[in-house]
Amino acid sequence: MRRRDLLDFAILGLLHEGPLHGYELRRRLNDALGAFRALSFGTLYPRLKALLERGWLVEDRSQAAPGKRPRITYALTDSGREHFATLAAQTDPAAWDDEGFDVRLAFFGHTERDVRLRILEGRRSRLEERLDSMRRATYESRERMDTWTTELQRYGEETTEREVRWLSELIEAEHHGTTNRPPASGPEQASSNPPSSPHDQDQ
Rank of each mutant, 00 (worst) to 15 (best):
L6Q: 06
L6W: 01
F9M: 14
F9R: 15
A10E: 09
L12K: 12
L12T: 11
L15G: 14
H16E: 11
G18I: 12
L20D: 13
L20G: 09
H21G: 12
L29V: 10
L29M: 10
A32E: 15
A32C: 06
L33K: 05
L33W: 04
G34R: 08
G34H: 03
F36M: 04
R37F: 00
R37H: 07
L44V: 15
P46L: 13
L48M: 14
A50P: 01
A50N: 10
A50I: 10
A50C: 05
A50G: 11
L51C: 13
L52N: 12
E53V: 10
W56S: 00
L57G: 07
V58W: 11
E59P: 02
D60K: 15
R61N: 07
G67M: 09
G67W: 07
K68Q: 13
T73M: 12
Y74T: 15
L76G: 07
T77A: 10
S79D: 15
R81P: 00
A85Q: 12
T86G: 07
A89M: 03
A89G: 06
Q90W: 10
D98E: 14
V103T: 10
R104M: 08
G109M: 04
E112N: 07
R113H: 11
R113A: 08
L117K: 15
R124K: 10
R124P: 00
R124Q: 13
L127H: 02
L127D: 03
E129H: 04
L131N: 09
S133R: 12
M134V: 00
R135D: 02
R135N: 05
Y139N: 06
T147A: 15
T149Q: 09
R154D: 05
Y155D: 02
V164I: 15
R165Q: 13
S168L: 01
L170Q: 13
L170V: 14
I171V: 08
I171C: 00
I171H: 00
E172A: 13
E172K: 12
T178N: 02
T178P: 01
R181V: 09
P183L: 07
G186V: 06
P187V: 08
A190H: 12
S191I: 07
S191T: 15
P194Q: 02
P194N: 06
S196P: 02
S196N: 03
S197G: 08
S197C: 02
S197M: 03
S197K: 02
Q203R: 11
